[in-house]
Amino acid sequence: MNKMKNLFKFLPMFAIVAGIAFSAFTSANHVVQNKPLATYFWYEVDADGHVTSETLNPLGEVDKNAAMSLAPADCADTPAKDFCVLGSSSDDLQIDDQITSPPTDAIIRRTN
């Protein structure tokens, strides 16, 4: 009975250790997956290649996978379509700026 009581005392400590272990385990795949991708500031772009928004990630550069979670619903990187989100190394592109031939790792394409 006393042993049980002692075990109960360690329960919160065990919860902390388990929480750290679980979070490290579940996040590991995500980190490995994102590593090789280039990082940019991302902007919404219309069908004519004009910037239509301020940067979607004002707090810092992010890779393409992270940018896709910010992109509008019709942008999911379908090949052979107009691009709708653009990655740029500049955090200061202006609305209506014209974009020409960005590299493929710096664009997310339209689904429809």
Partner: peptide
């Protein structure tokens, strides 16, 4: 357990968390 797990995984993928929150 829930809070440590949540905080840990947010910190491990902080950029993604930042993006999703924004």
């Amino acid at each position: 357990l829930m809070w440590v797990f949540t905080i840990g995984s947010k910190l491990m993928t902080f950029t993604k968390f930042q993006m999703q929150l924004l």
